[in-house]
Amino acid sequence: MLLETVNKEARKSENILNALLEYQKSKDTNHISEEELAKLAEELGVTESRAYSIITFYSLFSTHPRGKYIIQVCNDVPCYVNESTNILEEFENYLEIRVGGTTHDGVFSLERTSCLGCCNMSPAIRIGEKVYGNLSTDDIPRIISEYRRKYDEEI
């Protein structure tokens, strides 16, 4: 049972989206592979194509392995006019990856996200379940090292 890692409430088939999300969250690679998807579909009692249509539709899912921590940078207008592009570029330079990429050690992925609903603290980013706002490029090294430390502690 792959879904054993997921809490009981989320295992019900009427809540497929949640079950899949919770399963993905339980993985260090933040993704669901095709083989896993086939098994998950069976466990949830739905067709594989239905499960596949879900994970390819919603942006919080990925079919490719990603980093343990996904850095989502918002670049929609309220953030954009508060220099979110600089934040994005600073992450790219600092992590030496492009948007959409993952660091070699598999710790970070960098993504662009649509508005996080935190425009009052733009420019805003989200890492895992945490939002960081009112950022300047100076904050980036600190945030990265915070997560590097967290990673080292957990491993």
Binding site: D76, P78, S114, C115, G117, C118, C119, N120
Partner: peptide, 10 residues
């Protein structure tokens, strides 16, 4: 609530 610029529901 997903439209850029809106955060009152949050």
């Amino acid at each position: 609530e997903g439209e850029p610029g809106n955060f009152k529901d949050r």
